[in-house]
Simulated scan of single mutants.
Amino acid sequence: MASNGDLIWVKAASGWRDHPFPAAALRGASTKGVRVMTTLQDLRRTISRYVDGGRKRRQLRRELAQLAAMGSLDAVLSDVGLARSQVEPLIAGCTGSRELMDQMLARLGIDPAQLPIEVLRDMTWTCTTCPDKRKCRVWLAEAEGTDFHSFCPNAAQLDQALQNQHQVGA
Rank of each mutant, 00 (worst) to 15 (best):
Q114I: 10
Q157F: 03
L90E: 01
R27Q: 14
S48V: 06
K11M: 09
W139M: 06
Q59R: 10
Q86N: 09
G96H: 04
D132R: 15
Y50S: 07
C130N: 14
L82S: 00
M1Y: 07
R134S: 15
C94V: 03
D42A: 15
A13H: 06
K56Q: 07
L64V: 09
V119S: 04
L7V: 09
L43F: 14
D79Y: 05
D159E: 10
L105R: 03
A12K: 10
V10C: 06
C130T: 13
D111R: 07
G28W: 04
P20R: 11
Q157I: 02
T126G: 02
Q163L: 14
T46P: 00
R137K: 11
A155W: 14
R134L: 15
K32H: 15
E99A: 13
A161H: 04
M70Q: 13
R84T: 10
L60Y: 02
S85V: 03
G33W: 08
N164M: 13
R57L: 03
G109R: 10
S97D: 08
T95R: 02
L77W: 01
V36L: 14
M70Y: 00
K32I: 15
L162Q: 14
R107C: 04
C136Q: 07
R61D: 01
A12S: 12
Q41E: 06
R35T: 09
A113Q: 14
R35C: 05
Q167H: 14
K133G: 11
D6S: 15
S14D: 13
T31G: 08
A156I: 09
W9G: 03
R58Y: 05
L120G: 03
C94S: 03
W125V: 05
S78M: 01
S72Y: 10
R49P: 00
A24N: 12
T95W: 03
V51N: 02
Q163E: 15
L77R: 03
Y50C: 01
S14M: 11
L105E: 02
R55L: 11
D52P: 02
Q163A: 15
A156F: 08
K56P: 00
S72K: 14
R58N: 04
R61Q: 09
G71Q: 05
R35K: 13
R35I: 08
I91D: 01
L60P: 01
G5C: 05
S78Y: 00
A29H: 13
L108K: 11
L100H: 06
Q66Y: 08
T31E: 11
D159R: 06
L82D: 00
R49M: 02
K133I: 00
V34M: 06
G5I: 00
D147W: 04
F148A: 08
M37T: 07
L73C: 07
V119D: 07
R84A: 13
R49G: 03
A143N: 10
G109D: 11
I91H: 04
T95L: 00
D122Q: 06
P153K: 12
V138W: 09
V51C: 02
A23S: 13
V51M: 04
T38N: 13
E144S: 15
